[in-house]
């Protein structure tokens, strides 16, 4: 046997397939570790595309979630083949067409994490780091959060997460939950134009969220998977066609409400999440950013994060 590859990008698809078919692969996301086993043709190659910079690990002592992707049963193996996601025998979703194994896997891991990691406040937000401090961007539909998150990572910010702002109540720090950024519809083309070299998986057309393509986290972000950050800036982005860039300070109580009501488990944590979110807005500058041009927005955010005047 040859020496074990260090990263997914070094492994051959056969090697990845073999691991998926036997003991599985252990994927580190920062806040959690997932062991995945799969029988879905083509999944290995796509996994390699979007997890290329992640350490390749086909042995592990512990995983937070043990998940499986399996082919459909009976006739469904032959006719319009399907893929099913399960965790310890629980199947949270209907099967997907077998070609859509990656979106199913990504949604599945999000589901597990959102259901079972109630030791943290799980904000619905993108989180990025610069100079050892965190930027939190809560998602509001149509905010262009994923586009902005992707562009920030591609311009020197460290990506912590695109979906979950993982806030630890004990010390108010943000943990990475580093997964491929799911870009939807127009934003796929926007990011391709913004960074033609960026590593992206295939476009999955016609999923329940429209067209989806996954942007691979870069090596710089993966290198800091163990590193949590204190928050510095809470930013509510809003994309508006043709709008001039504008930055509006948000009162803490306003920012609090927008963060809390945009969380996966705020109500479930009771007083713990109230205190944690209140501390977060108290420690951070809070703004609303309206933009139409990506480059302007990026400059503005960089200035805010480096404390320059804007």
């Amino acid at each position: 046997m040859t020496a074990s590859p260090l990263f997914f990008s070094d492994a051959t698809p056969d090697r990845i397939d073999a691991a998926l078919a036997s003991d599985g692969l252990w994927l580190s996301y920062g806040a959690c570790r997932v062991r995945v086993r799969a029988e879905a043709s083509g999944f290995a190659r796509i996994l390699q595309d979007v997890y290329g910079a992640f350490p390749f690990q086909d042995q592990g002592e512990f995983a937070d979630f043990h998940v499986r992707l399996e082919r459909g049963r009976g006739l469904r193996r032959l006719v319009k083949p399907q893929v099913r996601f399960s965790i310890d025998g629980v199947e949270p979703f209907e099967p997907f067409p077998v070609s859509n194994a990656l979106p199913l896997f990504e949604w599945g891991v999000n589901w597990c994490f959102g259901q079972r990691f109630n030791q943290y406040v799980l904000l619905h937000a993108g989180v990025l780091g610069l100079n050892g401090r965190a930027l939190v961007m809560p998602a509001v539909p149509g905010s262009g959060k994923s586009t902005l998150t992707a562009a920030l990572m591609l311009s020197g910010f460290r990506l912590l997460s695109d979906e979950f702002g993982v806030l630890r109540p004990m010390d108010g720090r943000l943990l990475p939950m580093l997964k491929p950024v799911a870009l939807k519809n127009e934003s796929i083309e926007v990011i391709r134009r913004f960074a033609p070299d960026a590593r992206m998986g295939p476009v999955f057309a016609g999923t329940r969220k429209g067209d989806v393509a996954h942007l691979a986290p870069n090596a710089e972000s993966v290198a800091e998977l163990d590193c949590e950050l204190a928050p510095a800036l809470v930013l509510f982005p809003r994309w508006e066609a043709g709008a001039a860039l504008s930055l509006l300070p948000q009162a803490p109580e306003q920012a609090f409400a927008r963060l809390a009501f945009n969380s996966f488990n705020y109500g479930l944590l009771g007083a713990r999440s109230f205190n944690a979110v209140a501390d977060l807005v108290e420690r951070s500058q809070c703004y609303q950013l309206v933009y139409s041009r990506l480059d302007e927005a990026l400059d503005c955010i960089r200035c805010l994060m480096t404390d320059e005047d804007v």
Partner: peptide
């Protein structure tokens, strides 16, 4: 005919 279900995005 639809591709799937509900809940956390990504």
């Amino acid at each position: 005919t639809g591709a799937g279900q509900r809940q956390p995005g990504g």
